[in-house]
Design a binder for these strands. Structure first.
Lengths: 197, 197
DNA sequence: TTTTCATTATACCGATTGGTATAATTAATG
DNA sequence: CATTAATTATACCAATCGGTATAATGAAAA
């Protein structure tokens, strides 16, 4: 099996379970069935391993969103729907990475883990901001509140995923495996109600 | 000055800034201008210090919510308004603790920091669940979804605070100091729209 | 077969981790 | 003044931290 990929998998699993700082390099290499120099050969440092995990996960997320987003259409509701669909699908398919991403998003701003996600989050925000920008004709004058909308929208989706996964966590189930289109549309409706008023 | 209180202040400041695991006991006592045995005299362990911080902060939050909540009234909108007002006021007055609480809420479920907040969060959820329970006559049959509502509502409020503090973070401002009642009512309206439909 | 180069195992490093034993200090009480 | 009990400073501990020097391995190319 591919060592590099295996290390990434194992480390993501442990980071999302116990947190980046609480997991030692020693634990990782033992779980992965390798030794320390192998890990340092591939990633250079523990922080480098974290960066590689984020690079990997966010590129999948970008790809997922990119495959859904349509540059031609500028219908707000349809755009929001596609982003939500992509986002929620990703949250189900890569649930481990998603919950890890969430924990980093809310982690201490002065810490190393946050420093590592920050550029990825900014890039993600920017993509959503651009989408709102394109749809500005339908939303009226946003007075530079696109950024606030983007953060609100992503937070809204995150909250949805978190609530459901948390509820299932207490009940020892997995995340629902299928994203229902009607549920997503109802979600969009709820979010837009807060905007258009 | 009171040593115990000073340690709590300094530790909360550092934990919220860099994260629990990333802050060493040594750093804390140096910042607080004391020595290690003093800290261990009061709190027994680093984890004990964390527990004391949470005990302190959550008791303030409970008190804040308790002072707003009205057991007699069972009007949903009014109850939700009071909880929101209390919550947001607390987020402004104890912004440091609030952001630290948020980071713990989303932190790794298998980690020690989460283990420490878990009971406090459950208690908080329970208070909100009870509120929905009392208001069930107005919301129709909730089919045991009170728990989901409670989580959704708290997450909704958290997201609101997070979005604003994050936006201000990028702009190097403080959180707005005054909670506007109209903003809160509009927030409730937005949340309820998602429920009653 | 020999050379080459990516990959891995053994063993180690200084620094820091959370935590503590012990005695000195301080303030209040008898 | 003597005694007690809370509080603090000095100095230390084993264990673990992230990271590395060095040489052995493996397979592929010459």
């Amino acid at each position: 099996m591919d060592n590099r990929g295996n290390i990434l998998d194992v480390a993501l699993h442990m980071f999302s379970d116990k947190g980046y700082d609480a997991v030692s390099v020693q634990e990782i290499v033992e779980s992965a069935g390798i030794t320390k120099p192998t890990l340092y050969y591939y990633f250079g440092s523990k922080y480098g391993l974290l960066e590689a995990i984020l690079e990997d996960g966010f590129s999948k997320l970008d790809q997922m969103i990119g495959s859904y987003i349509d540059e031609d259409s500028n219908d707000v509701r349809e755009q929001l729907f596609k982003v939500a669909k992509a986002f929620l699908t990703f949250a189900v398919e890569e649930s481990r990475f998603f919950s890890f991403m969430l924990s980093l998003m809310y982690s201490a701003k002065g810490g190393e883990p946050y420093k590592a996600v920050k550029p990825h989050l900014h890039k993600l925000y920017q993509a959503i901001i651009d989408m709102f920008e394109r749809s500005s004709s339908q939303l009226g004058n946003m007075n530079g509140r696109q950024e606030q909308f983007a953060m609100g929208y992503l937070g809204f989706l995150n909250q949805y995923v978190f609530t459901f996964s948390e509820r299932n966590f207490f009940r020892d189930n997995d995340l629902r495996e299928h994203i229902n289109d009607d549920d997503v549309r109802s979600l969009i409706q709820q979010f837009m109600y807060g905007i258009v008023s």
